[in-house]
Design a protein around this nucleic acid. Structure first.
Lengths: 103, 103
DNA sequence: TATATATGCAACTTTTTGGTTTCACAAATA
DNA sequence: TATTTGTGAAACCAAAAAGTTGCATATATA
């Protein structure tokens, strides 16, 4: 079972979960209320998110609070940065061209 | 079959293809040489990438050159930006805390 | 203590995905 | 013109993923 962050964010339900718990920790039940699927399906998504360390659990009595491990999101940012460089270079080149044309 | 960019980049082979054609357009055969899979499998990946507009084709005689539609990558950047805000806020808060402690 | 609640896990089913094989077709080339 | 080359597409297959149902377990609560 290869669990990487790219596979984790591929599923729209998981992206919605990430968005939900980004600002405040939530329990599986509370999360599941926001979707038309069973609690168990959400639980499975949470397991996948936990396995690739995108999500952290905190037990509180019989409840488990899930919250986003925001640092992990930086991995995507890092991967993206090589392409960001490309589009910035292209933008600069376009900009220079426009300046040249103006002159 | 819904094709979105997050699903497109979930597959490691597709990410490798993106990386290959980021700087220069390539034909399916040339791309396939870099993998231990059949040309047809690569062709399928290219179709998926094309369907979600991450990749652009340019016919040249009987060859087809594939190149990266770098603008589309910005969609990931855009999605990521909401989380970037969170981690920057956290960083600033931590920074302020450290300043306070120093005082 | 008996019951209700919050949760995870395992077994199973259905759908999706990634790959292969085979073919068709158009463009180059002998 | 006949053959080779570059390509996409369809049919098929195996594996993985996503969802459901049915548990088990631990913690609250009446």
């Amino acid at each position: 079972m290869r669990r990487d962050i790219f596979q984790a964010i591929a599923d729209p339900t998981r992206r919605a979960i990430i968005s939900l718990i980004a600002l405040q920790a939530m329990t599986p039940n509370a999360i599941a209320e926001n979707f038309n699927t069973t609690r168990q399906a959400i639980s499975k998504h949470l397991r996948i998110l936990t396995e690739c360390e995108l999500v952290r659990q905190e037990q509180q009595g019989r409840e488990i609070y899930y919250s986003l491990e925001i640092e992990k999101m930086k991995e995507i940012d890092q991967w993206l940065s090589q392409y960001r460089e490309i589009w910035q270079t292209r933008f600069n080149q376009l900009d220079e061209l426009l300046v040249t044309i103006k002159k």
